[in-house]
Design a binder for these strands. Structure first.
Ligand SMILES: [Mn+2]
Ligand SMILES: [Mn+2]
Ligand SMILES: [Mn+2]
Ligand SMILES: [Mn+2]
Lengths: 219, 219
DNA sequence: AAATAAATTTAGATTAACCTTAATTTTTGG
DNA sequence: CCAAAAATTAAGGTTAATCTAAATTTATTT
């Protein structure tokens, strides 16, 4: 059985894995808030337990076994977030830290009962997909708002950034999951986006903001 | 902030504290499943942090601060047990281990929202009282079934023993919280109890069983 | 292709929570 | 009251997870 720390490392490696590139020690140390030396220690351990492929100085990737574990932790994290928002009336910017703890509770039965209680949600309050009990992740084709073609209407599906500051800003703008958005124009100078939200409100958001909003074009 | 282990020790000391007697090292080691030597180590630490009064060889007692902490952990444990039984359809003999983990989740807000979601329950699935947010424990006057006067009708309020084996046996006997019980007779030889449950079923339970059932006489 | 910089690993420590074995201290019952 | 038993503490170690500082490897720049 994995310790909480091992689970956190494996989850971090999972989240850092994009397009088959290996995940580097320094990148892990950054998201884990530890030193690269501590990461090296842990990588050796995770490699010995065959959760990761590891070649010294070359970065790591998850094994099959490691990926399975990662997906279970992600599943738990996201289901608990749904619980906190849907049942306990938390705001979407308040749930991450608590889910960080709850994701480590060990009980297969608990998580299946929770899933059932929540009516088998497929995405969490930030729009992130929830893997099923087998660890299969629903594949959603989504585009970044920063990449959305001009004048095409789309629906907000999720956020890449989860910090309270960002989520609260979106609350203020009136942008949430399910909102409709249409890019009216792009500012050439700084790639700011002129946006119509829910067919009424027009606003300008920075490229940085647009880069963190996932949308799906409507038909 | 306390570690999970410190919380578990403090809770164990709380549960072992009865009528102002100090709690002994060996008693703690037994319920914590550790060696007396490990307990000594921890007692030194908890004393340094002033959660307990500790004189070498004389046993320990909780300080005000320690008791407050203990009551918060007990509150969390019992609220989570209610959640598991009421909302996730767990049986009362399945919840203890999971609550053992959940009781350590750190978030004041979470526990108050949970309390609210559950409609401020005053006792857990085993009949144990739930301290309120201020740490005030409802005082229930209850008698052990083994002490209940003969032919007096009483209501089952809770169980002292929480092991799955015991709770499942009660399920089989049809004795649960809220059942009415009347002691028809006591066997002098071994103090077994002849019992009428819910005004119908008559059965015999051992003294050992009767000692672990808390009842409250009906008027 | 060096030389410098950046990334990573190794070495050596620290802290928490354990353990085993060996003192101590307290309790008990003859 | 005192010796044996029981309880408790002390000493010395282990493992997991961390750290700092130093060494090594890889990458980048002249
Ligand atoms: Mn976590
Ligand atoms: Mn999320
Ligand atoms: Mn616990
Ligand atoms: Mn209980």
């Amino acid at each position: 059985m994995l310790t909480n720390t091992e689970e956190n490392y494996i989850k971090a490696i999972y989240h850092l894995s994009v397009d088959n590139k290996t995940v580097r020690t320094n990148a892990i140390s950054e998201v884990m808030n530890t030193t690269p030396a501590s990461v090296s220690d842990m990588l050796k351990k995770l490699s010995d337990k065959s959760y990761i492929h590891y070649e010294k100085y070359q970065g790591v990737s998850l094994t099959k076994k490691g990926k399975t574990e990662a997906l279970q932790v992600v599943r738990k994290h996201r289901l608990w977030e749904v619980f906190l928002v849907e049942k306990l009336q938390f705001n979407w910017d308040e749930v991450h830290e608590i889910a960080e703890q709850l994701e480590h509770i060990q009980s297969k039965l608990l998580i299946e009962r929770l899933d059932n209680f929540l009516d088998h949600p497929t995405s969490d309050p930030h729009g992130d997909p929830i893997p099923n009990a087998k660890g299969e992740m629903p594949v959603l084709r989504q585009v970044l708002l920063s990449e959305l073609e001009i004048t095409i209407k789309a629906k907000v599906m999720g956020m890449k950034e989860h910090s309270p500051a960002f989520l609260q800003y979106l609350d203020k703008l009136g942008i949430t999951i399910g909102s409709s958005v249409k890019v009216m124009d792009r500012v050439v100078f700084d790639a700011s986006v002129e946006l119509k939200v829910n067919d009424k409100k027009t606003m300008v958001v920075s490229h940085e903001v647009a880069k963190n909003i996932l949308v799906s074009p409507i038909d």
